[in-house]
Simulated scan of single mutants.
Amino acid sequence: MLKIMIVENDAMIADYLEDVLNDAGYEVCGIAPDVESAIALGRACQPDLGIIDLRLSDGRFGTEVAAALCPGNAFGALYSTGNPDHPVLQGAMGVACLSKPYTPDALVAALTLVRARMMGEATPASLPNGFRLLH
Protein backbone atom coordinates (compact mmCIF):
# COMPACT_ATOMS: atom_id res chain seq x y z
CA MET A 1 0.00 0.00 0.00
CA LEU A 2 1.34 3.41 -0.95
CA LYS A 3 1.78 5.98 1.82
CA ILE A 4 0.56 9.48 1.18
CA MET A 5 0.64 12.70 3.14
CA ILE A 6 -1.87 15.51 2.83
CA VAL A 7 -0.67 19.10 3.09
CA GLU A 8 -3.80 21.26 3.20
CA ASN A 9 -4.66 24.32 5.26
CA ASP A 10 -8.44 23.81 5.11
CA ALA A 11 -9.37 21.16 7.70
CA MET A 12 -12.64 20.22 5.96
CA ILE A 13 -10.88 19.66 2.65
CA ALA A 14 -8.09 17.71 4.36
CA ASP A 15 -10.60 15.42 6.10
CA TYR A 16 -12.45 14.88 2.84
CA LEU A 17 -9.19 14.07 1.04
CA GLU A 18 -8.29 11.59 3.74
CA ASP A 19 -11.60 9.76 3.22
CA VAL A 20 -11.18 9.73 -0.56
CA LEU A 21 -7.61 8.45 -0.35
CA ASN A 22 -8.41 5.78 2.24
CA ASP A 23 -11.29 4.57 0.06
CA ALA A 24 -8.89 4.43 -2.91
CA GLY A 25 -6.51 2.16 -1.00
CA TYR A 26 -3.85 4.65 0.08
CA GLU A 27 -2.40 4.74 3.58
CA VAL A 28 -2.69 8.35 4.74
CA CYS A 29 0.23 8.87 7.10
CA GLY A 30 -0.86 12.31 8.22
CA ILE A 31 -2.19 15.78 7.51
CA ALA A 32 -0.28 19.04 7.90
CA PRO A 33 -1.58 22.60 7.46
CA ASP A 34 1.74 24.47 7.14
CA VAL A 35 5.28 24.15 5.84
CA GLU A 36 7.09 23.26 9.08
CA SER A 37 4.64 20.58 10.22
CA ALA A 38 4.50 19.14 6.69
CA ILE A 39 8.28 18.81 6.47
CA ALA A 40 8.37 17.19 9.92
CA LEU A 41 5.56 14.81 8.94
CA GLY A 42 7.27 13.91 5.67
CA ARG A 43 10.57 13.18 7.37
CA ALA A 44 8.85 11.08 10.04
CA CYS A 45 6.60 8.96 7.84
CA GLN A 46 8.59 8.87 4.55
CA PRO A 47 5.53 8.93 2.24
CA ASP A 48 5.60 7.80 -1.36
CA LEU A 49 3.27 10.59 -2.47
CA GLY A 50 1.96 13.89 -1.26
CA ILE A 51 -0.98 16.02 -2.25
CA ILE A 52 0.19 19.53 -1.43
CA ASP A 53 -1.92 22.67 -1.41
CA LEU A 54 -0.02 25.55 -2.96
CA ARG A 55 -0.93 28.18 -0.32
CA LEU A 56 -0.67 27.06 3.27
CA SER A 57 -1.95 28.38 6.60
CA ASP A 58 1.35 30.04 7.50
CA GLY A 59 1.24 32.15 4.31
CA ARG A 60 4.03 30.13 2.74
CA PHE A 61 3.95 27.91 -0.33
CA GLY A 62 3.70 24.13 -0.54
CA THR A 63 6.62 24.20 -2.95
CA GLU A 64 8.85 24.59 0.12
CA VAL A 65 7.59 21.24 1.39
CA ALA A 66 8.39 19.44 -1.84
CA ALA A 67 11.80 21.11 -2.06
CA ALA A 68 12.65 19.79 1.39
CA LEU A 69 11.33 16.26 0.79
CA CYS A 70 12.08 15.55 -2.89
CA PRO A 71 15.89 15.61 -3.10
CA GLY A 72 17.26 12.13 -2.58
CA ASN A 73 13.80 10.69 -1.91
CA ALA A 74 11.32 8.89 -4.07
CA PHE A 75 8.59 11.37 -3.15
CA GLY A 76 5.93 12.28 -5.70
CA ALA A 77 4.51 15.73 -5.07
CA LEU A 78 1.14 16.60 -6.61
CA TYR A 79 0.24 20.25 -6.06
CA SER A 80 -3.38 21.19 -5.59
CA THR A 81 -4.32 24.78 -6.36
CA GLY A 82 -6.99 27.10 -7.63
CA ASN A 83 -4.23 28.97 -9.48
CA PRO A 84 -2.35 26.40 -11.61
CA ASP A 85 -0.51 29.16 -13.48
CA HIS A 86 1.00 30.66 -10.33
CA PRO A 87 4.62 31.68 -11.02
CA VAL A 88 5.89 29.81 -7.94
CA LEU A 89 5.18 26.55 -9.78
CA GLN A 90 7.72 27.42 -12.47
CA GLY A 91 10.73 25.22 -11.76
CA ALA A 92 9.18 23.84 -8.55
CA MET A 93 10.21 20.41 -7.28
CA GLY A 94 7.41 17.93 -7.79
CA VAL A 95 5.71 16.02 -10.53
CA ALA A 96 2.39 17.64 -11.38
CA CYS A 97 -0.38 20.06 -10.52
CA LEU A 98 -4.13 19.47 -10.24
CA SER A 99 -6.47 22.45 -10.48
CA LYS A 100 -9.14 23.00 -7.84
CA PRO A 101 -11.93 22.14 -7.82
CA TYR A 102 -11.43 18.52 -8.79
CA THR A 103 -13.42 15.32 -8.40
CA PRO A 104 -12.33 12.37 -6.27
CA ASP A 105 -11.84 10.35 -9.47
CA ALA A 106 -9.60 13.05 -10.94
CA LEU A 107 -7.52 13.12 -7.76
CA VAL A 108 -7.02 9.35 -7.71
CA ALA A 109 -6.20 9.33 -11.44
CA ALA A 110 -3.73 12.19 -10.95
CA LEU A 111 -1.96 10.36 -8.13
CA THR A 112 -1.75 7.23 -10.27
CA LEU A 113 -0.12 9.29 -13.02
CA VAL A 114 2.32 10.88 -10.56
CA ARG A 115 3.39 7.46 -9.33
CA ALA A 116 3.72 6.13 -12.88
CA ARG A 117 5.83 9.14 -13.85
CA MET A 118 8.11 8.56 -10.86
CA MET A 119 8.60 4.97 -11.99
CA GLY A 120 9.59 6.14 -15.49
CA GLU A 121 6.42 4.98 -17.19
CA ALA A 122 5.00 6.88 -20.15
CA THR A 123 2.27 9.42 -19.49
CA PRO A 124 -0.98 8.45 -21.23
CA ALA A 125 -2.54 10.79 -23.78
CA SER A 126 -5.72 11.11 -21.73
CA LEU A 127 -5.21 13.10 -18.55
CA PRO A 128 -7.67 14.03 -15.79
CA ASN A 129 -9.34 17.43 -16.12
CA GLY A 130 -7.11 20.13 -14.65
CA PHE A 131 -3.99 17.92 -14.50
CA ARG A 132 -0.65 19.02 -15.87
CA LEU A 133 2.91 17.86 -15.51
CA LEU A 134 5.35 20.39 -14.13
CA HIS A 135 8.39 19.47 -16.20
Rank of each mutant, 00 (worst) to 15 (best):
I6E: 01
A14H: 10
D15A: 12
L17R: 01
D19C: 11
V20P: 11
V20H: 07
N22M: 15
N22S: 15
E27H: 14
E27L: 13
V28G: 10
G30M: 01
I31M: 11
A32C: 09
D34W: 05
A38W: 02
A38L: 01
I39K: 07
I39C: 05
I39L: 07
A40S: 06
L41G: 01
R43V: 10
R43H: 15
A44G: 06
Q46G: 12
Q46D: 11
P47C: 01
I51W: 09
I52Y: 07
L54R: 05
L54T: 05
R55K: 10
S57K: 08
D58K: 06
D58L: 05
T63G: 04
E64L: 06
V65Q: 00
A66C: 02
G72L: 03
N73V: 02
A77K: 01
A77M: 01
L78K: 04
G82F: 13
P84A: 04
D85N: 15
H86D: 08
L89K: 01
L89W: 03
A92T: 00
A96H: 03
C97A: 08
T103R: 14
V108F: 07
A109D: 04
T112R: 13
T112D: 15
A116P: 15
R117K: 12
M118L: 09
M118A: 07
P124Y: 06
S126G: 10
R132Q: 09
L133P: 15
L134P: 07
L134A: 06
